[in-house]
Every structure is written in C-alpha cells, then in structure tokens.
Amino acid sequence: MSEFLLDIENLKTHFTVRMGNLLARQHGVLRAVDGVSLHMKKGEVLGLVGESGCGKSTLARTVVRLIPPTEGAVRFDGMDLTTLSPSLFRKLRPRMQMIFQDPYASLNPRRTVYDTLAEPMLAHAIHPRKTIPRIAGELMEKTGLSRRDVRKYPHEFSGGQRQRIAIARAIALQPSLILADEPVSALDVSVQAQILNLLRALQKEMGLTLMLISHDLAVVRYMSQRIAVMYFGKIVELGTTNDVFAHPLHPYTRALIRAVPVPDPPSERSTFFSPLKGDPPSPLNPPTGCPFHPRCPHATNECQQNAPILTEHFPHHTAACLHVNKIHTLPI
C-alpha cells in the first residue's frame, strides 16, 4: 500500500491532429500532457498552475479517465486506473469527483437541483433510496444553500450558487479525491471568496485530497500546501507553496509571479511590467531543447539543445531548468 492516494507516473496524453490543407493532409501529434509525475498524499491540497493550453485540464481529465492516456500510470489508492477494467473502475469512480469551471455549462438546465444531486447517489447506490431526499437537503445546507431550493432549476440560481450546487454534487458520494478545474475563474471577486472559503472548509472537514487547477496564482496560494507549475505539458517546478512563492526556481514561475498585477497603485506610473515576450509556442511545432527557451530571459545556447529534466534542487523542491543555480539567487 502506497503512502499516496494519487500516484501519477510518467503520464502522457497525446492527440493526433490533422494539419495542412485538403490536398496535403498531414497528421501531427499534440503532446498535451507529456510525461507528468505527481504524487498526492491523502488530505493534501495541491495547486496546479499554468497558462491556458499548458495541459492542466487534460491532466485532470486523464486522471479520471475522461480522456484515455497514451502512456504511463495513474494509481489511485494503489490501483492502476489506466489498466483497470471498466466495471472495476466504476466501483472506484465515486471516490474521485470533478468540479468544472463553468457552472452554467456543467449543470443540466432541464433537471432540478434535486435530480442533479440524486443521480450520482442512485447510480452508485451508496445510500438507501429512501434516505436520498434527506441527504440532498443536507448537501444543500452543507454548501450554504437553502434546503427549500432543492426543487429549483439551475437558471434560478446565480453563478456562485450554481458553483455551490456543483460542489454539493461532487461531495454527494463522499469522495476521497476532488479535482477542481478552475472552480472560481468564472465568478466575481466577492463570490469567488465565498466559494474558496467553502471549498477550504469542506476539504478540512472531510479530509479531502484536492487538486486545484487554476491560472490565478493568488487563488492557488490561498488554497494549497504544494504547488506544481506546468508548462507545455510538463511539470517545470514543484514545491511547497511557501518555497515556490518565496524562492521560485524556474524562470517561468518567476515570470508568472511577476506578471500578477498588484492591487496597490505604484508611486510613479511607469509601465506595466511584462516579464515575458511572445506567446507560448505552438504545441504542434515544439521548440528544441527546453520548451521555455524562446521566451526565457536567461536562455543560453545550451537551453536550445538540451531539454532539462525535473531535478530536486532543494529538499522537496524540484525544477526543470539547466540554470537553477544561477537563477535562484536573483531577486524575483
């Protein structure tokens, strides 16, 4: 029995895409997730950050087998999900749940909240049928909604309330693992704070293992104990929240931290500080060597040729950069 609840080992998810025009059709390989290893202890909150298109959502979806993996292993409680038969996987499935970004799209508009909450409980038959109405009411209250509203339809709720419903649905089966994919990015600031506090309270109370995917560093910092930074399908830095924010090792992490606009007006109004030039590279035409080198301010010739591997530079703090020794002493 492994000490980890979730054990992702060298996971790869590649997609075949068609390129070129009708006459000169080619097939390309898009490496959305390209060799990710991550281990999560029971009860841990891990924040996964990165720009859009870096593969963070694909990673989460591959873990719960919404997308089949190309290579690698995902062990949940010691069992490899990638090779598990569908019927055995179905038995495990209640223990891992997802919360999606858009509460307007992730709830069925034609079903009452009760139907939405009851469905997973009926499908997996984890509670006696008779107790479901009571449990649905409890779930509503647990997530800060009114028990009476259980017969309403999603359109009768605001965005924040819908996200509460999505959370209620996710915890209905008393899962051990929750993968939350940008759970607050569609919400307003004041509502975002409510949802984050709710997620954090539930995580503590139920001892949930939570993978929080977000592009918002402040959100991730508030919620997580450890942070994984993803770029171009790979983890480029992994460490405790404090280490990653206080001593970021990878130039990409440093750039992400610097790019967050600070809600404090500068005394002299100069310019915005944009630490990175250019856009992320095309995943169909990956750069040689380190995928970050075309945008990296510290890149050398070596970076164009050799791809760095994720190495532990400090205890429990790993990064994939050839120049960590040079960079980590620089001020952020």
Binding site: V189, S190, Q192, A193, Q194, L217, A218, V219
Partner: peptide
C-alpha cells in the same frame, strides 16, 4: 473596502478570505 479585502493576494497568507455576504 470589502471588494479589496475579498481578493486573495500574493502577499497575504491569512487563513480565511474576507467575504461579502449575500448576492
């Protein structure tokens, strides 16, 4: 004031975020 307090920030590591009740 409430709007500013309810924003998670990179420098602040307090335990619970300030929230504005209601809608």
């Amino acid at each position: 004031r409430a709007l500013m307090q309810s924003m998670p920030s990179l420098s602040d590591t307090s335990d619970t975020l300030f929230t504005i009740p209601g809608q």
